[in-house]
Design a protein around this nucleic acid. Structure first.
Lengths: 203, 203
DNA sequence: TTTCTTTTTGACCAAACGGTCAACGTCACG
DNA sequence: CGTGACGTTGACCGTTTGGTCAAAAAGAAA
């Protein structure tokens, strides 16, 4: 497929620094709102130096999105048809919620891209993502038909997992403004969401 | 309080055109990503003409957010303590979902602002919004204690309504990419969400 | 040390940005 | 019809934007 990158230690290090800085800025400002100057400053490099590692703003963003896509699909990919249905779905919810806690910037980067109409990700959505979702929706539909869980639309079930878990990363400011400083949103969400999905799926 | 605006017909019309164009562009690109040139073009005005009606980009955005805030709180404000608990909550869900259908741009504008850390809305979140949410959370907690609905955290219940309904506006591209062209997302969501909240709240 | 490659940077560029202004139309109303 | 307020615009300004480039500095290999 693609040839091995063949990178020096310095390249490895500085590319990583750029991508981390870009994640910070893109997830905060969106693609158009982000500037190379800000990314460079955040990465601790001069702008020309940054452009030595990545040819353009587009390329940085594309690199970030590509890496994100894989990690994003992972928690759903882990859902096993052979496992206990309720456990499998609750496990998926737990993994997604954990990602909202551990990778909120990634979640917001993804949210930014989708809210803006996914101008540089359409293909991935209709491709890999749809393929995986349809497959897992099939698994869930099978469980419903076998009477192992309640009879609900599997696609909308998956959407509900996404929205309920990602909400705690994407809308973090709002959640914290309402709950106050003393409460840990995601900690509380864990119990709430487990109860929600348990009740939803019970026969 | 604030003096009556005293506006001509032309002012009324053109201010409305600017705000509509700005809603389109801001909701698509975020604050920094949006440009006055694009808003002006979308509104069918020259840039200086646009700046005759609004002093700055900030002012357009602020005007938009202020108008949005009221409409955004409305569906929750309508929740009545004296009504039937399940009906009241299902009614709230229905109203919110209807807003995702009728005002997706407003939903995305709001989402953009929050995802970006609510830099020009912090006060409103911790103020009016928190006040209203806390009040209604109290009502719901009362229903729980009275044994009229299941015992769940009222704040997280409200978050779940927000995330599940707004998802269909904010992540519209993704939802459509997965469901395909022939399915009507919000139409299907109606039934799904009613089932979800009925099961969640049942004693 | 020498030589060659990789890395870094200050100076620079054209385009796009938010915003201004003086001048010029257009409108309502007496 | 005249006149004063309202509405519109082309030309312009200083700054920021994504991106370039030649030249210098730093590493690696001999």
């Amino acid at each position: 497929m693609n040839a091995p990158p063949r990178r020096t230690r310095i390249q490895e290090l500085n590319r990583a620094r750029v991508l981390d800085a870009a994640l910070e800025v893109f997830s905060r400002e969106g693609f158009r709102g982000a500037t190379l100057d800000e990314i460079a400053r955040e990465a601790g490099l001069s702008k020309p130096n940054l452009l030595y590692y990545f040819a353009s703003k587009e390329e940085i963003h594309a690199t970030l999105m590509e890496a994100l896509m894989t990690n994003w699909l992972d928690p759903l990919a882990e859902l096993r048809a052979c496992g206990n249905p309720l456990d499998e779905i609750l496990g998926y919810v737990r993994r997604k919620l954990q990602m909202s806690r551990d990778f909120p910037r990634e979640s917001r980067l993804f949210a930014q891209e989708i809210v803006q109409g996914a101008p540089r990700m359409q293909a991935a959505l209709a491709g890999d993502l749809k393929t995986l979702v349809d497959e897992k929706a099939g698994v869930i539909a099978g469980w419903s038909e076998a009477g192992l869980i309640a009879d609900i639309d599997p696609h909308h079930l998956i959407f509900s997992v996404w929205s309920l878990t990602q909400h705690y990363a994407d809308f973090d400011v709002q959640v914290r403004a309402i709950l106050g400083e003393k409460r840990d949103p995601i900690d509380e969400a864990q119990g709430f969401l487990e109860a929600l999905f348990t009740r939803l799926l019970a026969r």
